[in-house]
Design a binder for these strands. Structure first.
Length: 507
RNA sequence: GAGGCUGUAGCUCAGUCGGUAGAGCAACGGACUUUUAAUCCGUAGGUCUCGGGUUCGAGCCCCGACAGCCUCACCA
């Protein structure tokens, strides 16, 4: 049976699988279900490790004869995945891991009895097991569960990756995220950190009396942002629909409807390119507060981020891509015009100088509105240089059609963006609530931009809602994936999205 | 969409000048009752991503396709 010549045409993976299936068969032959079942009463491995101090050492040990002192520890029950196995004759050491930690098991032939020993011999890396045993130290001082009873919970038919190097291929890490979570250092922790951050954002908003709502994701008109939408079709109504590109226009309708502090934390979809900072579906937070303005939102943004950092148990100085980002509040605040002048050497109201500077940077500026040119220059020269966190506020009005202008300077919009490491993390406005001005701005396409990039698609019902009277309000958008990136040290968005979009695997 | 890099055993990676495909881990057989990436002896495992081409001969050179990564463009 084990004669290699009888298996000479089997491939490597087939041999590996055959060996595991043979063990599975033997487990079944022992009358044990290799797919396990309910396993009650086990403690998290981290909790078990915390019981180390309950181990008592009897003073009967005899150092002269080399016999270890007698130990008594608590009886514990654990469950987890086998990540390492060392066989030494009639002993097996196993390292088992759950989502809280890892611990060593000791299985001795004379200690567990023949049936457990037989089962132990059928264990493979990757199998899921449960154990009952006593928590003690080995000779070398390693905290260990000395197994008394072994429970088989599930078989791994496929071989896990190299036990120490784990998965290195970024493609495999994304396509088989389950393996990545098991075997890549920090992968599971990052996923759990993400949920802690999202929960913290919700808690912070709830503590400020904001209420969470769920708007539609299927839109007849995909508005609220400048992005190309995905298109789909509803059969019964026979209409084309778009997946939402923003949450904004429905939340504002709710503001009109009297939900004075409202937010939605949800997925939006943009049919754009994919890179380290962009995934076609991503998670957005949008918040609206009646009777507030963009400064209200600035304070709220800072609070949301600070609380999220606290929720992950980290300090305010965070490592990110080899650099340190200092989130110690208060964050820096500078106007668009100040930063523009500082980084370009050109005053923000000097049109001739701006066009000259744009030409020097190779930016095509002819026929474009001066604010568009200014913003191209800003994006090229300023944004990438902002380490942050820094609130950039008071933007040129013409590039912000949904924003209220300053009362004393209609060329300036009450808007801020929060930049960290050159990334736009948050974007907020004092919302425009004048329906006539809104309609005019919607209608008048932004000069120099093609139609599909502008917000020319008119949402008539949204304008009708504004005519009912929308309270003056502050509005905020936060890119949750980017926030998680910054707070978990991830330098690509694919690290914080469990299942990023990939081309389908070809067989 | 453009350019660059990468693709070899289940996993991680070597592969020189174009001359019969290599290692570690994992697996299989054996030894071992305190190991820590256990160790030791032995065995097996390959459509070199796919398809063409050049050549006496291609993992290696050329062309094309597919996938991933990076940079750029769009975008947040």
């Amino acid at each position: 049976m084990n004669d290699p010549t009888t298996q000479n045409h089997a491939g490597g993976s087939e041999m590996l699988e055959a060996a595991r299936r043979e063990k599975l068969r033997k487990i079944q032959a022992m009358g044990i279900d290799p797919w396990g079942g309910r396993f009650d009463g086990h403690a998290a491995i981290a909790e078990i490790r915390a019981r180390e101090k309950e181990i008592v050492v009897e003073p009967t040990g005899d150092c002269a004869t080399g016999h270890p002192p007698e130990q008594h520890g608590p009886k514990v029950r654990a469950a987890g995945r086998i990540v390492l196995q060392r066989k030494a004759g009639k002993l097996i050491f196993i390292d088992v891991r759950d989502w809280t930690g890892q611990i060593q098991l000791f299985i001795g032939r004379n200690q567990v009895g023949e049936r457990n020993w037989e089962l132990a011999g059928l264990l493979d890396l990757g199998d899921l097991i449960g154990v009952d045993g006593e928590l003690r130290h080995t000779k070398t001082g390693e905290l260990t569960i000395f197994v008394e009873q072994l429970h088989f919970l599930a078989k791994a038919i496929d071989t896990p990756p190299a036990k120490h190097k784990g998965l290195q291929d970024p493609e495999l890490r994304q396509r088989r995220r389950y393996l990545d979570l098991i075997h890549t250092e920090g992968s599971l922790e990052r996923a759990l950190h993400r949920t802690a951050i999202v929960r913290s954002v919700r808690d912070t908003l709830a503590s400020e009396r904001f209420v969470e709502v769920e708007g539609p994701t299927l839109h007849a008109i995909a508005g609220g942002a400048a992005a190309r939408p995905f298109t789909t079709h509803h059969n019964a109504l026979d209409i084309d629909l778009h997946l939402r590109i923003a949450l904004e226009l429905h939340l504002k309708r709710l503001l009109v409807g009297g939900i004075e502090r409202v937010f939605e934390l949800g997925r939006v979809y943009r049919n754009e390119g994919i890179d380290a900072r962009h995934n076609p579906e991503f998670t957005m937070l949008e918040v609206y507060q009646a009777y507030g303005d963009y400064r209200t939102m600035m304070d709220l943004t800072e609070k949301i981020i600070i609380e999220a950092i606290n929720a992950t148990g980290q300090q305010y100085q965070l490592d990110w891509g080899g650099k340190t980002i200092d989130f110690t509040p208060p964050f820096a605040r500078m106007t668009y015009a100040e930063l523009f002048a500082e980084h370009t050497g050109v005053e923000a109201d000097d049109e001739t100088a701006i066009r000259e500077a744009a030409a020097r940077d190779g930016i095509e500026h002819r026929g474009k509105h001066i604010d568009v040119v200014k913003n191209l220059l800003f994006e090229q020269r300023v944004e990438g240089a902002l380490c942050g966190p820094i609130f950039v506020y008071d933007y040129p009005a013409s590039i912000c059609p949904l924003t209220k202008r300053k009362a004393d300077d209609p060329t300036v919009a009450e808007r801020f963006e929060l930049f960290v490491q050159g990334m736009e993390l948050a974007n907020a406005y004092t919302e425009l609530n004048d329906p006539d001005l809104q309609e005019e701005l919607f209608s008048r396409q932004l000069e120099g931009l093609p139609e599909e990039e502008s917000m020319a698609r008119m949402d008539r019902d949204f304008l009708r809602a504004l005519r009912q009277g929308m309270p003056p309000a502050g509005g905020l958008g936060v890119g949750i994936d980017r926030l998680v990136m910054l707070l978990t040290g991830a330098t690509t968005i694919r690290e914080v999205i469990l299942f990023p979009l990939l081309r389908p695997e070809v067989e």
